[in-house]
Design a protein around this nucleic acid. Structure first.
Lengths: 341, 341
DNA sequence: TCCGTGTATTTGATCGTTCAAACGGATGCT
DNA sequence: AGCATCCGTTTGAACGATCAAATACACGGA
C-alpha cells in the first residue's frame, strides 16, 4: 500500500465518513469542534493532502492562474516582469492559488494559448501584462467571458468603461512628478524629460507627470518645456543619442528624468557626473551604477491583481465609475548616489 | 448547455463510444483510420479539449513540472534564470508539459513546498537551479524518490555518482577558455581572472578554464598567474574595488576575464576603454554597454533538462560513468564593441 | 405522544477521463 | 461445422474529491 491516503482513509482512522473529512477541509465551521480535532489529528498522522486534480474535476475550478512569460525578456526592464512574477507567485500561494506559465509569440498566439489552457480547465483566470492600445487579447477574453486582470491600464477608451475589464496599474504620472519635484527641490530648474514618442499610453502618462510638475513649479514657459521634452525609442543607444542631439542643438539643461532605466543609462553615459539623472523601474542596472529611479511597488500590484481575480464577477454596482474594479498604486522614488557618469 | 464537450459528446457525434475517442487521442494506431478521421472531425467540429484534471486523476500523473522562482532576482544575473524559465516553458509546452511556479525562502522551505506540490499530485517532477555543495534538496528528493533534474552540477562528490541524480550544466571551464583564448589571440598577454573566492563549484570551474588556457598559451609563470587571479564576492562595487586594488598593487595587465557580468561591469567602470573586459552570462547589461560576454545556451539546457525528466527512471545501465543522465553543454563567446569604459 | 425544528453526519451521485476486460465479427485452420 | 485467433470497438469500474439530498439524533412545544 504505497498509495497516497485519501479522504476515505482519513475518515476510517478518525471514525467518520468521507464527507466529514471534506468538510473539515473546506467548511470547518459546520463540523463539531470535537470531531474536527479528531479528523485533523488523523490528517496529520497520515500526512494526507487533498488530491488537487480530483478536487478540480469535481469543483470545476482549477485555482490556477495563467500568465504569459514576457518575451521581451532581453531588455534591461525585463526584471520588472520577473519581479512581478515573483510577487504574484508568492501572494497567490498564500491564497491557495497556483501560477502556471505559458509562452506566446504574439497576441494572436497568446489568445490561442489562453484558449487551450482555459478549455483544458487547467487555468481559470489569466493575468495579462504589457497592455496596449486596443488590445485584442482583452477584447477576446471579455467576449468569451474568461476572468482576467491586467497589469496595466487599457489605454483605449472603450475598454476603460467596460465593467468586465479589471486592472491594476502603477501611477506613472505621480512617479514622474516625484522625480521631477525632487530635482527641482535640489535646485535644478531645467529638467529634461527623456521618454518615448507619442502616442504611448504609459509614456504619455509619465510625460504628463513631468509636465505637470514643471508647469507648476519650474516657472519655465510652455515653449521652454516643449524644447526639454524628448521622445525616442526605448534603448540605451537611443537615450544617449537623444541627449547628444539636445546638447548639439545648444539647449541648456540641469537634470534629466527618464521613462525607463535604459534611457537613463544612455543619458548617464553621455553627461558628466554633475548632471543628475533619474530613471524608471529601479532595475538591477540602476542599483549597479547608482542611478536614482522610480520604483514600482510590485508587491502591491500583485496583491491587487489577486484581489480583483478573486472578486466575484457579478458585483452589484454596475456603475462605471466604481473603482472597485481598478487599483492605481503609487510608486516611490529611490534616491541613489551616483557611481558612474 | 454551455458546458464544455466531453469524450461522450464527441463519441455521440462521431457515432462511436467514449473509449474510441480516448484512443484516437492517446493511441491513434489502434483505431481504424476511417474511424479515426470521423472522430477527429467531430473533435474539430465541437472544439473539444480533454479535461486536464480528469485525465490527471485517472492517469495519476500531472504532466506538470515545478520550478522555484529564484529569489536572487535582484542581481544583474537574474536574467539568466528568467531566460532559462522562458526556454523551459517553451520547450515543455512542445512536449505537452506544463510549468508551475512556486517560491521559497530557503532550502528547507523549498523542500516543504516541493512536498506540498508533490503530495497534492500537482507536479510530478521538479527542476532545481542554483545547486550548491551538499545540497539538502537533492538529497531529500532522492530519498523520497521524487523525479527531478538540476540545472547545475552537484559539486559534492557523493551526489555526482548517485545514479538518481540527473543534471544539465554549462561547461563554464570551456567558456572561460574561449574568452581567454580570444584575448590572447588579440595580443593581450597578461589576462586577469576576476572571479569568486574558492571554494565555489561554478567559480572554481570557470577559473580553471582561464588557468588552463593561460598555462597553455600565455607563456607566463605560475607565480605570475597567481598574481593575476582575483577572488571577490559577486557585485559591481566588488569588481571595481578588486581591480583598483590590483592597479594600486602595481601589477600590470592587458585584459580581464570575469566570472560574471556584474564583476565585469565593475571592472569596466574603472579601467579605460583600452583594456578589454569579458563578462559571463551575456545579460542585458552586457548588451547595453557593449560588453563581450560568454553566453550560456539556455535553450539547450532547457531541452536537456526535459529530456532527462522524460527519461524513465529505471534505465538499464547502472553504470556510474553512464552519461545518459547528464548533459554538459558548451557556451559561446559573444564579442561586442565597447560603448563604455 | 406526536410532530416540527435544528444540528451533525452519512449516503448516493457525479465530475471527465482512462484502464482492464469483455464483446462481436471476420478469418483461417483442423 | 467447430474452434482458436485476431482486430476494432464497447462496456464496467475506477481515479479522489465535492455537491445535494437523506438520515439520525436531540430538544421543545402542543
Amino acid at each position: 500500500m504505497d498509495n497516497l491516503p485519501t479522504v476515505l482513509d482519513v475518515g476510517r482512522v478518525a471514525g467518520v465518513s468521507r464527507q466529514t473529512v471534506s468538510n473539515v477541509l473546506n467548511s470547518p465551521e459546520v463540523v463539531k469542534p470535537e470531531t474536527r480535532a479528531r479528523v485533523e489529528a488523523a490528517i496529520a498522522q497520515l500526512g494526507y493532502r487533498p488530491h488537487a486534480s480530483a478536487r478540480r474535476l469535481r469543483t470545476r475550478r482549477s485555482s490556477t492562474i495563467g500568465i504569459r512569460l514576457d518575451p521581451m525578456t532581453n531588455g534591461i526592464s525585463g526584471s520588472v516582469h520577473d519581479r512581478f512574477l515573483h510577487a504574484l507567485t508568492e501572494k497567490a500561494d498564500a491564497l491557495g492559488l497556483r501560477v502556471m506559465l505559458f509562452t506566446a509569440t504574439d497576441p494572436q498566439d497568446e489568445i490561442r494559448q489562453i484558449r487551450r489552457l482555459h478549455e483544458g480547465s487547467d487555468v481559470d483566470a489569466f493575468v495579462l501584462t504589457s497592455t496596449m492600445f486596443g488590445d485584442p487579447r482583452t477584447q477576446w477574453l471579455v467576449e468569451h467571458d474568461i476572468p482576467f486582470v491586467t497589469f496595466g491600464r487599457p489605454w483605449g477608451i472603450d475598454d476603460l468603461n467596460d465593467p468586465h475589464h479589471r486592472w491594476v496599474d502603477v501611477d506613472g504620472r505621480t512617479g514622474l512628478r516625484l522625480a521631477t519635484a525632487h530635482l527641482l527641490a535640489e535646485g535644478d530648474r531645467h529638467v529634461v524629460y527623456l521618454g518615448w514618442p507619442s502616442p504611448s499610453g504609459t509614456g504619455d502618462d509619465r510625460r504628463r507627470g513631468w509636465r505637470d510638475e514643471m508647469e507648476f513649479s519650474s516657472g519655465l514657459s510652455r515653449v521652454d518645456l516643449d524644447s526639454l521634452q524628448l521622445g525616442v525609442r526605448d534603448g540605451v543607444a537611443e537615450g544617449r543619442e537623444a541627449i547628444r542631439d539636445l546638447i548639439e542643438a545648444g539647449i541648456a539643461f540641469d537634470a534629466i528624468v527618464c521613462a525607463s532605466d535604459s534611457l537613463a543609462l544612455g543619458a548617464l553615459l553621455l553627461v558628466g557626473p554633475d548632471i543628475p539623472v533619474i530613471g524608471y523601474d529601479n532595475t538591477p542596472v540602476a542599483q549597479a551604477v547608482g542611478l536614482s529611479s522610480v520604483e514600482q511597488p510590485l508587491d502591491e500590484v500583485a496583491a491587487g491583481v489577486l484581489e480583483l481575480i478573486l472578486k466575484p464577477s457579478g458585483s452589484p454596482g454596475a456603475d462605471a465609475t466604481d473603482d472597485s474594479r481598478h487599483r492605481l498604486v503609487e510608486p516611490r522614488l529611490i534616491v541613489r548616489h551616483r557611481r558612474l557618469g
